[in-house]
Amino acid sequence: MARNVTDFHGILLFRRDYAERDFLIKFLTQEFGKKMFLVRGAKKRGFKMVADILPFTTGSYVGDIADDGLSYIRTARETNQFQNISTDIFKNAYATYIMSLVDQAFPDGQPLPTWYHRVQRALTLIDDGVNASIITNIMEIQLMPAFGVAPQLQGCAICGRNDLPFDYSESYGGLLCQQHWQIDPRRLHLAQRTIYYLRQFSVLDLDKLHTIDVKPQTEHAMRQLMNEIYDSQIGVHPKSKRFLDQMQSWSARLTMPPQASPDDSTD
């Protein structure tokens, strides 16, 4: 098995126990794509790289990179942890889901320099307090082609027009303009505001995004749309998504206004 001792830049996707004292860690690397690393002795007291292999860590490392199979980390050069993601359960859930999708979307060992930068930028925005739900929507939309689903989102899938109201059709693989709504009675009947963000998010450069303000109703509609597409067309269900759904359900119940009692005024 060919090995190469080299520097690499990595975003820690996940880590898991391996044997009594070791960890298996998967990185999304800038140079080699996704790679699994065995870190020997990582659970031993006094292990010098403890802070460098924590969840939600990114940085530069030196490793023995294998063409196939397990690679090994020799040392860490400079690393940083996304502190707010690490300490906020909601940010944590969204970030974990994004990294789970990336892990499932691409094979190991395929260089992904563009996606390395995109994931790093998405995590930075979430860590900085930009709406984590919307950042997740953007990543979900832009990851769809990697799963083999590339809906037409810039014009009508039938005629190409882009100057009429749209709706989304799963049967026809993307948007239908108003002239062709009648051909798919099962189109999703989305609000035009939802369509607007769907189209914008599909081509949005995260480097140019610094803040975003979306109404709660639109945020909820985007979540429902992504759930529908991923459930019916992509069929990817990371464990982290189930936890995220639970979190969103808890949040909705906590923020739901109390029901009026019989004595409350409705005027």
Rank of each mutant, 00 (worst) to 15 (best):
E20Q: 09
K215N: 11
P107K: 12
I89C: 11
V214R: 02
C156R: 00
L204T: 15
T57E: 12
L225N: 02
Q179I: 03
I85F: 07
Y168P: 03
L244G: 03
F23N: 08
L54N: 13
R74G: 11
F90H: 10
C159E: 06
G10E: 07
L175I: 05
G109L: 08
T75L: 03
N84Y: 10
D264V: 04
L28D: 00
F166G: 00
R15G: 15
T29E: 05
W115Q: 06
F166A: 01
M99A: 12
H180N: 04
T255N: 12
Q233V: 10
K241G: 12
D167C: 11
E20G: 01
A150Y: 02
A42H: 02
R3M: 11
L225G: 02
F8C: 08
E228A: 10
Q152F: 05
P55A: 06
V50G: 05
M139Y: 07
L244N: 01
L112W: 02
L209Q: 05
R187K: 15
I135D: 02
Q246G: 15
Q154H: 10
S169R: 04
Q104A: 14
Y18K: 06
F243E: 06
A221L: 08
A19S: 15
I98L: 15
A93F: 00
D7I: 09
G63Q: 03
R118T: 10
V50R: 14
F82C: 12
E228G: 08
D205V: 09
L198Q: 04
D108K: 13
E140T: 09
A132I: 02
V102G: 05
Y116C: 09
A93E: 00
V102Y: 03
I85H: 06
A122W: 00
N92K: 07
G129A: 09
H117T: 11
V149E: 10
G63R: 00
M99N: 09
P257A: 01
G69I: 13
P165V: 04
T57S: 14
T114V: 13
M144G: 04
S240T: 11
I11S: 05
I85M: 08
R186P: 01
Q83T: 15
Q217S: 12
S251F: 10
H237T: 12
G160E: 02
E20N: 07
Q30H: 14
N131Y: 09
D7W: 08
N84E: 09
F147Q: 04
S60Y: 06
T75F: 01
G129N: 10
Y61H: 11
T266L: 13
A19T: 10
T87R: 13
D213C: 08
V119G: 00
D67A: 13
R161L: 03
N92D: 02
A93K: 03
I234F: 08
G59E: 08
T266D: 07
D103K: 07
N227G: 15
L143S: 10
A150S: 14
L176K: 01
M36F: 05
L28H: 05
D88K: 13
R45P: 03
E140A: 10
D64S: 15
D22S: 15
L204W: 05
T114Q: 15
Q182P: 07
K35Q: 11
G173V: 09
V102P: 00
Q110N: 14
G46Q: 08
G63I: 06
I89S: 15
P258F: 00
T75Q: 14
N92I: 04
D264I: 06
A93V: 03
H237D: 13
Q233Y: 11
P151I: 04
M222D: 03
N80Q: 15
A221T: 03
P55Y: 00
